[in-house]
Design a protein around this nucleic acid. Sequence first.
DNA 1: ATGGTAGACCCTCTA
Length: 262
Amino acid sequence: MKIASWNVNSIRARLPIVTDWLASRRPEILLLQELKCEADAFPAEPFAALDYQAVVVGQKSYNGVAMLVRRPLAIERPLLALPGDEADAQARYLEATVAGLRVATLYLPNGNPVDSDKYPYKLRWMARLRAHAAGLLAQERPVVLGGDYNIIPEPEDVHDPEGWRNDALFRLESRKAYRALLHLGLTEAYRALHPAVPGQPPAYTFWDYQAGCWPRNLGLRIDHFLLSPQAADRLESCTIDRQPRGLDRASDHTPVVLVLRD
DNA sequence: ATGGTAGACCCTCTA
């Protein structure tokens, strides 16, 4: 079972890059974030032509998440929002059951600037995610929570830790909230298989469009897969596919690919 | 030089 997660920074702007990638990699599930369109405007037909059905939670201009599932697998019991705040209209969470796995695609709030109301919103959203994940874990089933967490977990995951010290993606308060989520009993798939080694090349999933960050490899590792124990027991591989980031008109994120044993 | 890019879309916001 191959599951990929990709913040595409507009699905309509990225359509040929995403369809080409799907045609060659053929994951069973692709989790998308930052669609930047309403559900009605999601380009479902080119994905259907590749045998992928889609569930979309969209919003005009901002946010938006989707789950693409390759036939003949079915999408069961979709949940179209993160529970815990009925008034939250931002399209950032979608969860469904596929082949006995409970799978979520999530776009955690960025939270910058930290002195705006965006930052407390990020922390509240993380508290809601933690509460919801606790309920999922209590069911003792395989759960995969994938997406753009907008969290740099450790100094090894950013090119300039000192410069990012007070950023909403890296400040201690954010990392503590992320760690509290992990401490429920979730396994972060990439780091579990690839411990950071001093002197080895860093592993990033995002490079800013500005200041030549991609050619200079000044990136961040902010896209993650968190696994319940029943999913972690099946963990075979987790890799970062840098190829699409080097294309013309690329997203600023590149896909993370998880493989679970059947 | 306090810089630079990208996407959506009404011109400024978000990242």
